[in-house]
Design a binder for these strands. Structure first.
Lengths: 254, 254
DNA sequence: CGTGATTTTGACGACACTCAAATAAAGTGG
DNA sequence: CCACTTTATTTGAGTGTCGTCAAAATCACG
């Protein structure tokens, strides 16, 4: 995969004003007053990360904070034994970067499609955090939301078998990345099978077989490998163990 | 197990002043100024939860916040299929409760030994959070620490086999609950095998077999079922995949 | 259209789960 | 304090799910 430095600043006309930003309505910057928002925008640099680009790398310094406005990023940690655990897929509205630490990122962040993000210098962002308690509180809520999401993932890995894991994955993906107008039954899967496997704690073969089984049962269709159509939502909900979908939230990547 | 209401306020002489509290040096209350600390102590009710007592229950309102000063609590979530995932074991310095929500606790918290805790009314605690940004920021750091700890747990469940999981569990337990003077080679295990199993995503039989195998290999000794002595730390570190132990931190339970 | 990477399918084996029984520990009442 | 009950843990035997290894098919890209 191409991981060359393909970071570019977006030109002025591409740099939408915060007031018209789609990500804002769901993210932390949508929960602060005009003054704080102005200060935030003043230190932000809208940036494009092309597909495959490493946003930041595990164990390397983290001097920036990123607020994703478009595209998708995967977070993963490489293990000593050569394994790889993907800890999350992040999209519009999600925050990632050095909120906690300026050195030794816990994991690597990589764009799986072209990604646009507001980039803040860590120092400036933390200064705003001190000046605007609302922003700090908003981040605290985001962080506790993230802990809850991680708890769901822990349950998935600790107590669910293959079909249950894939069903939950498809439903969450369809729900969180619902594109305007879509009802969540057409799920875009921009990540590779390897990524899904490493996210669900499985092998690619097992993931592939699970997809095939879902097709055979008529639960889904796969017009493309990167696109699933959910044909039997009740069955998938049943498998995933969802009574109702979790309320929309934003993630906080480290 | 006895889960009757055995909550009692500690008498005045048992209620140690914050200035002499052992938990304070590691917890959030150790990172705020004297004024904020005074306000915090003013609304705190030191409370005893006897062994087996439910501190709060999954899906029930959460009108309090708890700061553990002694003992150990387990957090778990009951699943629709009858399963149970333990998401964490909390001890002195750890926070739990309704920081995010006043209704619908994510999981149940239960004392596995007698537990002492400072109990704060949620409303009052949140008010202090707004008035003292330092406290809010301190909690944010605690929350991001917790996210990182959950990431470790996700890796454990997603990519580790049985011996690796148990080795990691024993080392973390020995490290985090190190009693004064001890070097972390004598590990207290106040939780049942079932709890360890549900924490590590295994069955009790598998956990028991793993303990037996570690004994056979001379890695550990089990003077009592609730106490392990680590005899071969290098081997356990190797298995757990730890280069060095994570730095001490406090947890944040929801 | 051809090349390389990704995904799918197949055969086989191992690790961890299930079921079942024995042993050990903890709690209870005389 | 001891016999008894109950609960927790250990040990054993057999099974199934998912991982491993290998090859074929499909997809992406120039």
């Amino acid at each position: 995969m191409d991981t060359r430095n393909q970071t570019t600043l977006l030109s002025e006309d591409e740099h939408r004003d915060c007031r018209t930003c789609l990500a804002r309505q769901m993210s932390v910057c949508g929960k602060i007053d005009q003054v704080a928002l102005g200060r935030l925008q003043a230190i932000s640099r809208p940036t494009l990360f092309t597909k495959g680009r490493i946003v930041f790398e595990q164990d390397s310094p983290l001097d920036h904070i990123f607020l994703i406005t478009g595209g998708m990023v995967k977070l993963f940690r490489l293990l000593a034994d050569g394994g790889r655990q993907i800890t999350g897929f992040l999209g519009p509205g999600d925050l990632l970067g050095g909120i906690k630490r300026s050195a030794g990122a816990y994991c690597t962040a990589q764009a799986i499609v072209d990604v646009t993000a507001c980039v803040f210098p860590r120092a400036g962002f933390l200064r705003l955090l001190q000046e605007y308690p609302d922003l700090c509180f908003s981040l605290l809520i985001t962080a506790t939301d993230e802990i809850e999401a991680h708890n769901d993932h822990i349950i998935l890995l600790g107590h669910r078998r293959v079909p249950q894991r894939l069903a939950a994955f498809l439903l969450v993906m369809g729900h969180r990345w619902k594109t305007n107008g879509a009802d969540g039954t057409v799920v875009q899967l921009p990540m590779a099978r390897t990524d899904i496997a490493d996210y669900l704690g499985l092998t690619i073969e097992t993931v592939s077989r699970a997809f095939a089984e879902f097709k055979r049962l008529g639960y889904i269709a796969l017009p493309k490998t990167s696109q699933a159509v959910l044909l039997n939502l009740p069955a998938l909900y049943e498998l995933a163990g969802f009574e109702d979908m979790p309320t929309p939230r934003v993630s906080l990547g480290l």
